[in-house]
Design a binder for these strands. Structure first.
Length: 664
RNA sequence: GGCGGGAUAGCUCAGUUGGCUAGAGCACAUGGUUCAUACCCAUGGUGUCGAGGGUUCAAAUCCCCCUCCCGCUACCA
């Protein structure tokens, strides 16, 4: 009988920089699931990789004085290096710059175009220049911009669109009839309530504003935007072919059993991707799980943040603690639905209590006793007592408990079950008191049996531990001179050959860590920058690295100097500023310009506090038609620069100029 | 503004369809033990289960309202 296939994927990592510990969590989580599925008998295909196109990379490469290709080659190999360091067992590492991937993506694009599901759009009559937004006819109010009520105009930039709308009714049906498709459930509600039920717009799937991407082969000034390019990796990586027979792997493994992704990119995987698949006539993945994030918690009162430069990276952590300790922490500490916390202190605490004390010490004391009392020879003399029964029951039950957890993707709980087994072993030692038995030759058989039961129990535990901590599992088995149990062998107690000899020199699996010393060492290696005296900016937007960038810069149409002169740009001084009630991003400023004071509302609350605003001399458009924002009158606009991380900066003059100074 | 999710022991978190004295791990305290990595085992809490109301024989769990966090979304001239 052939094994059942199981196809699991992670999101492909965006090659804009080194992934931090939170990004690394995903690959380790996927790895534990993949290894577990293999363990229980599935024919597993596990795919990961890197997403390497887009404007952000074009820019990063430019800043780095390299070509985009050189840049992504470097970052991609860094990412792969970390995945390997974490001992992840992926079968395929796909890169979106792979030749066969690019070729198929072009064909997918062409196929959808030929089919009529991709069409060329012109934005005609639907673009509001001041709002920089596109609207469909149905969204317009009296034929005008629904936001500002101004005339909308035809826009110049052409782009290709995918007919998302055509497929959403079928998708809604699919989601309703497959309640487990989107996990956790709260995310399903978000997708339904925010997008599917209100109705979606067709998706723009090409760009002309940058070059670093897969060209549309029949219209080369366009590159294929991230949706079709990146999402297709899940099928091109299996050898899907548009116009010839696909590879065996595709036939065998598609549809995917599980797309494991961060919760931030659920929309792309549960709406865009399924609709694309429907358009291609392919079956939909069985499940998409949007896992929570691992956030960096406080460390001795020092907030960890990227701006302070003390971000935790997986390789640094592995350097200090070893792979399996880091894997253990990631897998054990992460809750199912809410975000988890990571800090150096939490990691050390977990290593000491769980890995060094409970597990490491158990293995060590068991081997020591075997050596001390029987020269390392473990014999099953069959001298059982009632107290053994509970131990055996716990050991035998663990397999099923682990399986139940893993079926629900409750990886953290599965690990806890395995450690409960080890805890039970420690208790068993206390109950049986081998050192007392050792004092009397009469109890030799009993002592033998006790140690045998212990070794046997540890072997079962170590076998179950393999998907989560492969190296540790192997080390334990090696020290006990035992083979890893297969899943079918886990229901019998006593398979360890009586008379086997354990190692005479047990190796410490996890050394206890001196927390103080280690934290000092960490401070030396990764110094946290000095606290800025100023209060930090309120609630900086969290932008995960893996997020598919959605910011685009539109090439605006040419204007004449006369048109430019219509704008009145002046220096303004902010006299006072307050938050706008009932809004999340708005600040309302009173701005002195040329004797008059304008009230201006700006969406910059996440970047400046009202206190920081006061006194600043900024660039203001003073002849904008007043409008209301969140019910508050706004009589102009403060100019800001925005980078690709969404960070904002107000524009000011290079030297001090009075309020009201004209700008031209 | 719309939708959704949180708020449980000092810390990180579990608590299934409402049901016996509210749980785990860590930390802390006491006792036991010595095979072991100062380890292991046992015992221990005055936790207002965010505040307030309600339904019920019974509410952390259901309903209403409030406060504070968070996510998605809209808005951000």
């Amino acid at each position: 009988m052939s094994k059942r296939p199981y196809y699991i994927t992670t999101a492909i990592a965006y090659t804009s920089g080194k992934p931090h510990i939170g990004n690394t969590y995903e690959i380790v989580l996927a790895d534990s699931i993949a290894r577990y599925k293999r363990f229980v008998g599935y024919d597993v295909r596990f795919q990961t990789g890197t997403d390497e196109h887009g404007q952000k990379i074009e820019i990063k490469a430019f800043e780095n004085l390299s070509t985009p290709k050189e840049f992504v080659d470097d970052v991609s190999s860094q990412i792969k290096g970390i995945w390997d360091l974490m001992n992840t067992s992926y079968d395929k590492f796909i890169r979106t710059t792979d030749e066969d991937h690019e070729k198929q993506v072009q064909k997918i694009f062409k196929k959808l175009y030929d089919k009529g599901d991709i069409y060329k759009g012109e934005y005609e009559g639907m673009y509001c220049t001041p709002c920089e937004s596109f609207f469909t006819q149905s969204q317009l109010v009296d034929g005008k911009c629904p936001d500002c009520g101004r005339e909308v105009q035809p826009a110049k930039e052409e782009a290709y669109f995918f007919k998302l709308k055509k497929y959403t009714p079928k998708l809604i049906e699919y989601i309703n009839s497959n309640p487990d498709f989107i996990q956790p459930e709260s995310r399903k509600n978000e997708m339904m309530n925010n997008f599917l039920l209100p109705g979606v717009q067709d998706l723009c799937v090409s760009r002309t504003s940058f070059k670093w991407g897969i060209p549309v082969d029949f219209d080369p000034k366009h590159v294929i935007y991230v949706w079709i390019d990146a999402l297709s990796n899940y099928i091109t990586g299996l050898g899907y072919k548009v116009d010839e027979p696909s590879d065996e792997n595709f036939k065998k493994y598609w549809p995917a059993d599980l797309h494991l992704i961060g919760k931030d990119i659920l929309r792309f995987h549960t709406i865009y991707w399924p609709c694309m698949l429907m358009a291609l006539g392919l079956p939909l993945p069985k499940q998409v799980f949007g896992h929570p994030w691992l956030l960096q918690g406080n460390n001795k009162g020092n907030k960890m943040s990227k701006s302070r430069g003390n971000v935790i990276y997986a390789d640094d952590m592995v350097d200090l603690f070893g792979v399996d300790a880091v894997r253990y922490f990631l897998l054990h500490e992460m809750p199912y639905e809410n975000d988890g916390l990571i800090s150096w202190e939490l990691v050390i605490e977990r290593i000491n209590s769980d890995l060094a004390n409970t597990l490491g010490n158990l293995v060590n004391r068991t081997i020591s006793m075997s050596n001390k009392y029987f020269d390392g020879v473990v014999t099953n003399s069959g001298d059982s007592q009632p107290v053994d029964e509970d131990l055996k029951k716990v050991v035998m039950d663990t397999r099923l408990k682990v399986n139940t957890c893993m079926d629900k993707l409750r990886v953290a709980d599965a690990i806890t079950e395995i450690f409960n087994l080890f805890r039970r072993c420690n208790k068993y030692i206390d109950e049986t008191e081998p050192w007392v038995l050792a004092k009397d030759d009469e109890h030799k058989d009993r002592l033998n049996t006790v140690l045998y039961n212990l070794v046997e129990s540890i072997i079962v535990g170590a076998s179950l531990l393999e998907p989560f901590m492969p190296e540790t599992s192997e080390k334990i088995l090696k020290q006990l001179n035992a083979e890893k149990r297969r899943v079918t062998e886990l229901s019998s107690f006593g398979l360890y050959p009586s008379g086997s000899k354990v190692t005479s020199e047990p190796e410490i699996l996890f050394a206890r860590i001196d927390t103080e010393k280690m934290l000092d060492e960490i401070e030396i290696r990764f110094p946290s920058k000095e606290e800025e005296p100023e209060e930090e900016k309120p609630k900086k937007e969290k932008k995960p690295e893996l997020k598919i960038p959605t910011i685009e810069t539109k090439q605006k149409e040419e204007i004449t100097i006369d048109e430019f002169n219509k704008m009145s740009l002046q220096m303004g001084e902010i006299l006072s500023c307050e938050e706008v009630k009932d809004s999340k991003k708005l600040l309302c400023s009173q701005v002195q310009v040329n004797g008059k004071v304008l009230q201006i509302v700006s969406g910059i609350k996440n970047y400046y506090t009202p206190e920081q605003m006061v006194g600043k001399k900024v660039v203001v458009i003073t002849n904008l038609k007043p409008t209301k924002l969140a019910g508050v009158l706004s009589e102009g606009m403060l100019l800001c620069a925005e980078d690709f991380n969404g960070d904002l900066a107000l524009l000011t003059a290079e030297k001090d100029m009075p309020a009201g100074a004209m700008i031209s």
